[in-house]
Design a protein around this nucleic acid. Structure first.
Length: 876
RNA sequence: GCGGACGUGGCGAAACUGGUAGACGCAAGGGACUUAAAAUCCCUCAGCCUCGGCUAUGCGGGUUCGAUCCCCGCCGUCCGCACCA
């Protein structure tokens, strides 16, 4: 019979409406079935959804639909991470209000997402810039402040003196503001912090329990928290060189064992001692100013060439009063870590060695490899950082570094300088407190009031929300909240006198640190409904980009603990399972050359191929175009593909299928037109096969067979059913898809025969069951096509509401298996034998094979290895 | 600079716990059907030669009966580095 081509443009909206009408994806909190919470990291409403977003959401959707079919009450919500700088940038550039810009983008992007047919509970949707949401965030902030989890302290920011604004690290380019081009200054501001360091040990220890997280993410977090056990050492200043009032320099070190290899002290440009030393040394002050120009980012500081300048100050060695060492200001020492001062041991640290070589400082090796010769062992270009034996270290000589560490520690603990011991053991974390103050408009206002009389006073909960004023302008430099004529003026809730509002808003990471909890009861007046939150949380499967491996996930872990301590949830860890997916990348195209070069989009380019070489040119002018590297899709490189580029023609199912096939989900996938066309061919192929046989099969009762042609069909279907279920559980979507391709290949012949009116009853019954299984396997990936096929088979209900089929264990194992037979590790033959044959039987049968006989040439084998169900290896 | 990953045919990849390297798909080539095209179906498809082999999982070593997988050392690419989200 003739079949029409499948038309996704007609089918997809039809089924989406059917799902909506049945409210299939609206989740009830009081549903008694076991719960499953799947969540994809919510998007920033940048303007348009691109194909990379949809890959992420499709993965979550496959899981959601599969778990629903497996009988779970699934929560699969969506929202918008809607505060942040791009809205303010748009306001400055295009004179559009951040609020209008954001909500317009959300409307556009929501419409784009709906086309994808995602099984999302849209009734729970919210944006973090909704007053309803940030109102509750302010409540949380006040509760956390009351619990002592919030603090204020001074911290550095990048200051653009021309735009009168604080710059993000990414806005500092080569020490200048990205917009103004002015040299960036550093300013100390008093800012709000969450005391995440109070939880450092717990955040570290609890990583062990997150066994459904990728190992690499746990390692990254572990390193980020950076626990170290070391020693504080107080080096007395040589009196004749010390600035007035200064007597010692406190350094933190994890290698006190190398103390006899010390050849200099290095302190941060922000260290108080450096500032004092610079007071009457202009060249030092200038150098320090230079260092500060690098910005506040650690990466910039550490990538820069190592530089330093002698302060003229000298310290005295703790174990030798006659030994003094110079104190340098160095650009690679950070005030934020430890004490902002280190002692440099060039032989044991590459950075110190480079520094010493540059400034002609001594290099004394103090650790050498076991069995080395202390007299000749030298360090010149490469520091020795491994374990070994102490040398050139007086009373430490011959010890292992670890013993030396303890020896130095206990000796220094006994000596005192000032009123304190010269050495003190200390556990140090690299993790710093979480600075949440942003001097920006488009964020959640920090609900605090500054009063001359009473100091900093929290806004009473009854007075919440502190709403952002709408009447603002971005024409002048600086923070619009600061400039607003009335907003900041407020009575002190304590004494009633004039006070002023805090004009800092919160880091947008705060917004995303609890949205997953809000989804469990977004209608609540309190931030959460603890009962609902405790039932749903932790999120069973969280899916998002690897770029969030540290900050977002660590902050969320901290915030969940803070919410627990303030009674809003009962758990500490928000995400049980974590999956980090790869990006969608695309070729880049560049027209023109040198200064006139410009990026052009895929839709502006046409391709030629000759002698296997692809070349490209502009469609409009024929100008040649250079085909560039695969890159993450970005507006600036113009290599963005929108979902509707595919959905308009091929439909959402094709887009969903393509994005999950081929590449493993954790890896990047390259978007190609050929790949999308191939995926669409498969959509049509499935439709053709099912509809050819559909008329006949609609009236057939499904039944499996064990033998013959029908048996082969049943076995293929049940094997695929088992494998695809397992693959989805493991999020191995690409493998599941390959299994579905195999199944379709396997049933193509029988379905064709049935379409021509051939085939016996057993085959028809097996084919009917296999097709049902196929439709259910397809449903998580291509839900619209699955519904259409199901209707063709005579189904009256929705596949999206049907249970996952169960496989018959008897049909997924073969009675005979094929052993590869190796001779000396190389495959020479196959051996087909009963599955339950014992090792001796297998060995005998293998040795009887012609190829094995030939190889042995009459001799007996030295060894025969039989791995049951796997392989035979004959060692000749 | 520090931390983390990744590297397999022309391309995306698969290979379970150390057990047949290349499943499945894309591209390419050939054929069938067609007046023709599209669509569809069938076949070939890592490389090399002497058609029986040999060489192949970024490069160089090691462990093992057997290594894409484990260990050591290189090379290359990507991600994060605290105010981008």
């Amino acid at each position: 019979m003739a079949t029409e081509r499948y038309n996704p443009r007609a089918s997809e909206p039809k089924w989406q409406k059917a799902w909506d009408d049945a409210k299939l994806f609206e989740t009830k909190n009081d549903d008694p079935r076991p719960k499953y919470y799947v969540l994809e990291m919510f998007p920033y409403p940048s303007g348009r959804i691109h194909i990379g977003h949809t890959r992420n959401y499709t993965m979550g959707d496959v899981v959601a639909r599969y778990k629903r079919a497996k009988g779970f009450n699934v929560l699969h919500p969506m929202g918008w991470d809607a505060f942040g700088m791009p809205a303010e940038n748009a306001a400055m550039q295009n004179k559009v209000h951040p609020k209008d810009w954001t909500y317009q983008n959300i409307a556009t992007m929501r419409a784009q997402l709906k086309v994808m047919g995602l099984s999302i509970d849209w009734s729970r949707e919210f944006a973090t810039c909704d007053v309803d949401y940030y109102h509750r965030q302010q409540m949380l902030f006040l509760d956390m402040a009351a619990k002592g989890l919030v603090t204020r302290k001074s911290s550095k920011v990048n200051w653009d003196p021309e735009d009168m604004t604080v710059l993000a690290n990414e806005q500092v380019i080569d020490g200048r503001g990205w917009r103004s081009g002015a040299l960036v200054e550093q300013r100390e501001l008093t800012q709000w912090f969450f005391k995440i360091t109070d939880c450092a040990q717990d955040l570290l220890d609890s990583l062990d329990g997150l066994n459904e997280w990728p190992e690499k993410v746990r390692i990254m977090q572990q390193n980020w928290i950076g626990r170290s056990e070391g020693l504080l050492i107080r080096w007395p200043l040589s009196a004749d060189t010390a600035p007035a009032g200064e007597t010692e320099l406190e350094v933190y070190t994890t290698r006190p064992d190398t103390i006899f290899g010390a050849s200099f002290m290095a302190i941060s440009a922000d260290h108080p001692l450096a500032k004092k030393a610079a007071e009457n040394r202009p060249e030092l002050a200038a150098f320090m100013e230079d260092v500060r120009r690098m910005g506040t980012s650690v990466a910039a500081l550490e990538t820069a060439e190592k530089k330093g300048m002698d302060t003229g100050i000298r310290v005295v060695h703790p174990f030798d009063p006659s030994w003094t060492l110079p104190v340098y200001v160095a650009n690679f020492v950070l005030m934020d870590y430890g004490t902002g001062a280190i002692f440099g041991c060039p032989s044991g640290d590459q950075r110190d060695l480079d520094f010493a070589n540059k400034y002609g400082l001594p290099v004394v090796p103090v650790v050498m490899p076991e069995g080395g010769d202390a007299k000749t062992f030298q360090v010149t270009e490469e520091a020795y950082t491994d374990d070994g034996v102490m040398i050139n270290s007086r009373f430490l000589d011959g010890m292992k570094p670890k013993e030396a560490f303890n020896d130095v520690a206990s000796r220094l603990e006994q000596i005192s300088t000032g009123n304190r011991p010269m050495g003190e053991r200390k556990v140090q974390f690299r993790l710093r407190d979480w600075g949440i103050s942003r001097q920006r408009y488009w964020g959640c206002p920090i609900p605090m009031i500054h009063c001359q009389e009473c100091g900093v006073v929290p806004v009473p909960k009854a007075d919440l929300p502190v709403k952002l004023p709408d009447d603002i302008d971005f024409d002048k430099p600086g923070n619009p909240l600061d400039r607003h004529p009335t907003w900041r003026h407020v009575k002190c809730p304590n004494c009633g006198k004039d006070g002023r509002r805090e004009t800092d808003t919160m880091d947008t990471f705060v917004d995303s640190s609890w949205y997953f909890a809000r989804f469990t009861a977004p209608w609540e007046n309190e931030p959460t409904d603890p009962k609902a939150a405790n039932e749903w949380l932790p999120v069973d499967q969280y899916i998002g980009g690897i770029e969030h491996a540290i900050l977002h996930l660590l902050y969320s872990r901290f915030f969940t603990r803070a919410m627990r301590d303030t009674g809003h949830v009962g758990i500490a860890e928000p995400f049980k399972g974590l999956f980090t997916q790869g990006m969608v990348v695309h070729e880049t195209y560049r027209a023109g050359s040198g200064q006139n070069g410009r990026w052009v989009g895929p839709s502006e380019v046409t391709f030629d191929e000759s002698d296997g070489k692809r070349s490209a040119k502009l469609i409009e002018t024929g100008e040649p175009v250079e085909i560039g590297a695969l890159e993450k899709m970005s507006k600036s490189k113009k290599n963005v593909v929108s979902p509707e580029d595919i959905t308009d023609g091929y439909g959402a199912d094709t887009a969903r299928w393509f994005m999950l096939s081929d590449s493993p989900p954790e890896r990047d996938v390259e978007w190609t037109d050929d790949g999308a066309a191939g995926a669409h061919r498969f959509v049509q192929r499935v439709w053709r096969q099912v509809s050819i046989a559909g008329e006949t099969l609609a009236g057939v009762a499904p039944a499996a067979s064990a033998d013959g042609a029908a048996g082969a069909v049943s076995k293929a279907a049940h094997k695929a059913l088992k494998a695809v279920g397992e693959d989805i559980e493991k999020l191995a979507f690409n493998r599941g898809i390959a299994r579905i391709y195999e199944l379709v290949n396997n049933v193509a012949g029988p379905l064709g025969e049935i379409g021509e009116g051939k085939g016996d009853d057993a085959l028809k019954a097996a084919a009917r069951q296999a097709t049902e299984i196929l439709v259910h396997l397809l449903a998580p990936f291509m839900p619209h096509l699955a519904e259409e096929c199901w209707a063709t088979l005579g189904g009256k209900d929705l596949v999206s509401d049907r249970a996952w089929p169960t496989f018959d264990p008897a049909l997924v194992v073969d009675n005979e298996i094929v052993y590869p037979v190796q001779i000396n590790g190389k495959k020479r033959a196959d051996l087909t034998i009963a599955r339950d044959a014992d090792q001796v039987t297998v060995e005998k049968a293998a040795l009887a094979l012609e190829a094995v006989q030939k190889a042995l040439d009459g001799k007996s084998p030295r060894k025969v290895i039989v791995v049951p169900q796997r392989i035979v290896n004959v060692v000749a």
